[in-house]
Each structure stands twice: as structure tokens, then as C-alpha cells.
């Protein structure tokens, strides 16, 4: 029982980080109808910048620079590559971002090589005790940050002019532009936000209990794809729930690997995708996705 609770809590915290990255994914999809596979390498970029700079600048300034770099990179992808072919079909745009991802991830992992770069977070390997369960402090921080960001995100989406513009543009771009909403700005803002969220995700995914920034970190964002699909591509709430589910599932399958060994070892990596497929069999547009989306 104790093990189960420990795993569950660990999974929820991990899932909170996935949620952030998935949220960025959904934001971009809603605003520009692009399935942004470059999210992974942007995540790596953010983490890389923080890891490289924290010694010279200090941790918090490094985080600020990392977020900015990831946001800028993300906006650049939109402005330079996506904007001119905005009306291209879903597949073309997705493959374009996949190409960007490969380029950026290759370059970054070449720079990182086999190194393990410390992210330099002040919470180091501290451990917090919550109701008798010991959890890495970085994960607790991640959970709180995720909760604040998700709540802030929701409020911004719901109440600010920016949020209204974003949702209008997502629903009917042409009409939104007739209402004076500048679609290119909305798109750029969405991409910037996705980049920054990816960097935050990267920061926590490379903090303890992970070792630090390695070339393979970009691949971690892959775990967010089942989260996004599971939640429904265009639902921010779905992304958050999807992220939590994927976090819990991957930690539980790893923790019960011995008991589940009849299914084969190394299940942790496969389980999120298996869960995703199961959900899609029952609800083809994800848990919270809009139905039309399946017809796209």
C-alpha cells in the first residue's frame, strides 16, 4: 500500500511536469493548427541554456534566459517556417516541425555529447516529507509551479483580452480577423508560450531525481504526445489530465515491473502509448477533444 501511494504521488508530480509541456502543445495546436513536434527539442534548448548559464549568471537569471531562449526559438519556428504556409495541411506542417525537431535536437545533443550537465537548481537533491511519503523537493516545486501555471493559464484564457483573442482565433480565424484580431500576433504569442512552458518542463525534467541535461532529454517530450492525444488535441484541460495520467501510468508500470513481468520487461516506456491506444479505441477524439477533430 505504501509503495502504491509513493508511486502514485511520484507519478502525479511527474505528470504535472508532462502537463506543462502538453499544455504548450495544445496551445500551439489551438492557435495555429500545427502539431508541433519541435516541442521536444525546444524543451532541450531551454534546459541546455539554463544548465550552461547557471554558473555564470546564477540560477534564477539563467532560468529567465532559458525561458526567453526557448520562447524565442519557438516563435522563430512559427514566423520563419510556419507563417508563410499557414494554410498548408496538418500533415505538411507536422512534418515540417518534425524536421525542425531533428535538426535542433541533433545540434544540441552534439553539443552536449555524453555529458551530464547539472541544471544547478537550488533545491538540489533535497527531499520533502509529505504525509510520510518522501518526495524529491524539486518534484514538489514542480507540482506547485505546474498548479500555479495551469491556474494562471486558465484564468488568462478565460478572463484576459489576450485569452479571448486566442480562443476566438482558435475557433474561427477568419471571423476573428474580421473582428480586428491580429492572427499572426496571436499565433506568435501561442508559440512563445509553448516554448516557455517547454523550458519550464525541461527545467524540472532535468532536475533531481533526473541527473541533469543530457542529449536524450528532448526525447522525454515524446511522453507528452500520448498525454496530448489522450486528452484530446485541442483541450487544455485534457492536456493537463492527460499529462497526469501518463505520469502515473509510467511510474506505476515501472514500479510494478516485477509483478507485470509477464507482459515483458521495460513496460514503463510502452505503457503510456498502450493507455493512449485504449482511450482512443473508446473515445476516438480523446477524453476531452472536440469531435470534429477526428474528421480533420
Amino acid at each position: 500500500m505504501n509503495q502504491f501511494v509513493t508511486l502514485l504521488v511520484g507519478g502525479l508530480f511527474l505528470g504535472a511536469i508532462y502537463s506543462l509541456v502538453a499544455l504548450g502543445f495544445v496551445t500551439v495546436f489551438k492557435a495555429t493548427h500545427v502539431i508541433n513536434f519541435a516541442q521536444g527539442s525546444v524543451l532541450l534548448l531551454g534546459a541546455y541554456v539554463i544548465a550552461r548559464l547557471h554558473e555564470s549568471l546564477g540560477f534564477w537569471p539563467a532560468v529567465a534566459v532559458g525561458l526567453l531562449a526557448a520562447a524565442a526559438c519557438s516563435v522563430l519556428i512559427d514566423v520563419v517556417l510556419i507563417r508563410r504556409i499557414r494554410r498548408a495541411d496538418l500533415g505538411t506542417l507536422a512534418i515540417l516541425t518534425l524536421g525542425v525537431d531533428i535538426l535542433l535536437a541533433t545540434e544540441l545533443s552534439r553539443r552536449i555529447g555524453t555529458d551530464v550537465l547539472n541544471i544547478g537548481a537550488p533545491w538540489g537533491n533535497h527531499v520533502t516529507e509529505l504525509f510520510g511519503i518522501r518526495v524529491a523537493t524539486s518534484r514538489v516545486v514542480a507540482g506547485c509551479v505546474a498548479a500555479v501555471l495551469v491556474a494562471g493559464f486558465w484564468a488568462a484564457f478565460k478572463f484576459t483580452d489576450w485569452g479571448i483573442a486566442m480562443r476566438s482565433a482558435a475557433e474561427d480565424g477568419e471571423t476573428a480577423s474580421l473582428m480586428g484580431i491580429r492572427l499572426n500576433r496571436v499565433a506568435a504569442a501561442a508559440w512563445a508560450l509553448a516554448g516557455a512552458l517547454a523550458a519550464v518542463g525541461g527545467l524540472f525534467l532535468t532536475s533531481f531525481p533526473a541527473a541533469g541535461v543530457t542529449g536524450g532529454v528532448g526525447v522525454l517530450a515524446l511522453a507528452c504526445i500520448p498525454a496530448v492525444v489522450l486528452g484530446g488535441f485541442d483541450s487544455p484541460g485534457g492536456a493537463v489530465i492527460g499529462g497526469l495520467i501518463i505520469g502515473v501510468v509510467s511510474v506505476l508500470t515501472a514500479g510494478y515491473q516485477e509483478e507485470l513481468s509477464f507482459l515483458g520487461r521495460g513496460l514503463g516506456g510502452v505503457a503510456p502509448f498502450a493507455v493512449m491506444l485504449l482511450v482512443l479505441l473508446i473515445r476516438p477524439s480523446g477524453l476531452f477533444g472536440t469531435r470534429e477533430l477526428t474528421r480533420v
Partner: peptide, 23 residues
């Protein structure tokens, strides 16, 4: 022997450590 197989992409050993502890 309690085996835990992982891939190079796995960076977070939370589940594995928990399984080891339980075993």
C-alpha cells in the same frame, strides 16, 4: 534477483527505486 529493465531515454528512476525498496 529483482530485474528492472530500462532504456537510455528513461531518466527518472522513481518507479524502479520504489520497486527495489518494496522488494
Amino acid at each position: 534477483l529483482v530485474e528492472q529493465k530500462i532504456t537510455p531515454a528513461d531518466q527518472d528512476m522513481t518507479g524502479q527505486v520504489s520497486a527495489f525498496k518494496k522488494a
